[in-house]
C-alpha cells in the first residue's frame, strides 16, 4: 500500500458494517449460490458452492464478524485469493469499487465493536469511513493448514 499512489478496494456491507477488501485479491463477485453444508466445521463456514465446475468453500462474513444479517440481503459472494487458496466470502451487499488516494487511507485504528486484529486500515471515501479488512488474518483460521 505504501508504495502505490492509490489504493483500490472493493467495498461491501456486512450487516450494518461497511468494510473493504484490497482489490488485488478479489477475483470476482458472484451472485448468491446454493451452498452445501459441511458438517463438523466452524459455524462461520457457509459450505461448498459449485463455481462453474470448481468447488469453492464459502465463509459467511456475518457470522465471522458477528453482525446480524439483514433480512433483505441475498448474500453475494466475494471470491478472494487467500494465502494461495481461493475462498468465497458471503456478504450482505457489494457497494462499490473505489480508488483511494494515500491520504484517504489511515493506518489501522480502533473501531468500536471490531476486533483490531482483523483491521488492516481505515479508509475514507466521500466522507464514508470503512474498515479495510486484513483478509488473511480474518480467513486463515477458517481454512485448513
Amino acid at each position: 500500500m505504501a508504495d502505490s499512489p492509490t489504493f483500490h478496494a472493493v467495498v461491501f456491507r456486512v450487516g450494518d458494517l461497511i468494510c473493504a477488501a484490497p482489490a488485488g485479491i478479489v477475483r470476482e463477485i458472484l451472485p448468491p449460490l446454493p451452498a452445501t453444508r459441511i458438517p463438523g466445521v466452524a459455524g462461520a463456514v457457509e459450505g461448498l458452492v459449485n463455481l462453474r465446475g470448481v468447488l469453492l468453500t464459502v465463509i459467511d462474513a456475518h457470522r465471522l464478524l458477528d453482525r446480524p444479517r439483514r433480512d433483505a440481503d441475498e448474500g453475494p459472494i466475494v471470491v478472494l485469493d487467500v494465502a494461495g487458496r481461493q475462498c468465497g466470502l458471503l456478504v450482505g451487499e457489494v457497494k462499490d469499487f473505489v480508488e483511494l488516494p494515500p491520504a484517504a487511507v489511515a493506518p489501522r485504528g480502533q473501531l468500536p465493536g471490531v476486533d483490531p486484529r482483523i483491521v488492516q486500515a481505515v479508509g475514507n471515501h466521500g466522507g464514508e469511513h470503512f474498515v479495510i479488512l486484513d483478509i488473511e488474518a480474518l480467513l486463515a483460521p477458517m481454512l485448513g493448514s
Partner: peptide, 27 residues
Amino acid sequence: VEPFDAPRGMPSFFGGATILADGAPAL
C-alpha cells in the same frame, strides 16, 4: 472426486467432495 480446499476441522470421515448431476456439491 474434485479437489477443494477443505476448511479447518473437516471431519476425517469425509474423503472429498464432488459435483452431482444437478450441479450441487456433495461430500
